[in-house]
Amino acid sequence: MSNSQIESGAPITLQELYPSSPFFKEALSLRVTGLLRAYSVETDIGVIEDGDKSLKINTQYLRDVSFRVGSLYQFIGELHIEPNNEAILQARTGRNVDGVDMNLYRKTIELLRQFLEVEEDNRNMVE
């Protein structure tokens, strides 16, 4: 009954996905958000972008999600790094997030990480 095998997708921005980043790892579960720039119904591959960064998304396992180029989407899935060092997210979930405040989202991710780190430090001190 336990779902401990389901990994949580760590929320990141596309700017944080570069080869030396701690998030740029094979099979790492991530949550990414960006504007859908392109989508192919033949390959189920989409490309999202945020600023000058982009990421390929494999949507073959997604059902009941309609893709509209120019809309904002959020995906949770596992990162796959191809031999040419190009990353592609194998999406498990996807949803349209048109209307999300991306500036607030970026700032909140930072704030959340700081909060979790401080909590971790305090916990370690107590233990």
Partner: peptide
């Protein structure tokens, strides 16, 4: 109904 919720810090059943 059993479902899991992922809030970015973990999944809870």
């Amino acid at each position: 109904l059993k479902f899991s919720v992922d809030d970015g810090t973990g999944c809870v059943t």
